[in-house]
Write a protein that binds this DNA or RNA. Structure first.
Lengths: 195, 195
DNA sequence: ACAGTTGATTGATCTGTTTCATGGTTACTG
DNA sequence: CAGTAACCATGAAACAGATCAATCAACTGT
């Protein structure tokens, strides 16, 4: 069975013929992940990369004081995994968890690498995808270094208007690197200044 | 003329035959960059990606208060550019400057994309390179969110032991996201605690 | 319908890091 | 080889954001 959603997404950067579509599709495994359930865990090897068919997930690390830091949100049509573990096949430092009930399509690193040989255009797709992810990751790094908490929050609201009201505030706090208390205070201040 | 240093580097991930080596090499242009001279500038399009043959460069952004934030150091054998501008061919947000007199090999985006069609293995090389860069960029993001300034500094010393004594302290401060004054204080404290 | 957990708000206090100011070195450059 | 610029060290004061604690609201499973 072909998952149209993935094929449509691949089509944004490459065009595959029928056989290629089928070959690629055949390597994906569809999995359901209930809210708050882990898809991947720190210490284990992330054998797969996940494409989000429905729902929303997050990847995060836990620091030595037990605080969580969110690296990525993955709404519909995004890819998520512990990239370090996925490419090295060594134990992961990140956790990947469903924020809402979700459905994902999994592709193992082994299958991915084999597909790169069989369908070189797929390697191009992931090359482009990774280039774009690198640009956003670096941009976020610069934002974290240059902007105040308030600026990072308003940035976030502009970048993710879709999920802003669907997820707990404390997850947003963890993404923009402030405490939930401080985010609450910033929001209070913003409201008061607008009224 | 073939630049052996680049070919050796490519060989870490892919193997090219003689013709492929020559084809790839023919697309690079060798350029000298004097200390403190800019290779790329904010607002201009970064048409090229640079491979460092000798010397050391840095990429950085300037925030609205005029403060510099270093995104990357590029010692010998590293690649550097404003990735956003390079892949989109839109005006750059970053500056790339030589820290010491340097020699670099430039490859334009156009030539790179053409080479990807002619030598698919080269696309693999850059796919792997970009994957690795993404992992380090994300790791640095997490470090910036989880670690104290002192931990980030000692991290830096372990990661870049080679350049630690060759570059001004204020550049290190700008990379680990503290003021030069505070880095100086941390170093003073570390010295005192060791003696 | 209820107890128990989880998330948001708010206030008082605390801390790591910045800012500003000063003086001392080192190192280019004419 | 003097002059000036860039770099580094150190101290006092200020601040952004964290921590701690208390209260309230909103889900959760039963």
């Amino acid at each position: 069975m072909i998952c149209n959603q993935i094929i449509t997404n691949l089509a944004k950067h490459i065009s595959l013929n029928k056989e290629e579509c089928e070959l690629v599709s055949s390597r994906f495994r569809i999995v359901q992940v209930k809210r708050k359930k882990m898809l991947m865990q720190e210490g284990q090897i992330s054998r797969d990369v996940a494409f989000v068919i429905s729902g929303c997930l997050r990847s995060y690390s836990v620091d030595e004081n037990g605080f969580e830091h969110i690296l990525q949100f993955a709404p519909v049509d995004w890819w998520i995994t512990d990239m370090y573990s996925f490419i090295s096949q060594k134990p992961a430092f990140l956790n990947v968890e469903a924020i809402t009930d979700s459905e994902v399509a999994l592709l193992s690193r082994t299958d991915q690498l084999n597909l790169f040989d069989q369908v070189p255009k797929l390697e191009r797709y992931f090359r482009i995808l990774t280039e774009n992810s690198l640009v956003s990751s670096r941009q976020r790094l610069i934002d974290n270094m240059s902007l105040t908490a308030k600026q990072r929050y308003s940035n976030f609201c502009n970048t993710y208007p879709s999920i802003i009201n669907d997820i707990p505030q404390k997850l947003i706090a963890s993404y923009i690197d402030v405490t939930p208390e401080f985010l609450s205070k910033m929001r209070g201040e913003l409201l008061r200044s607008k009224k």
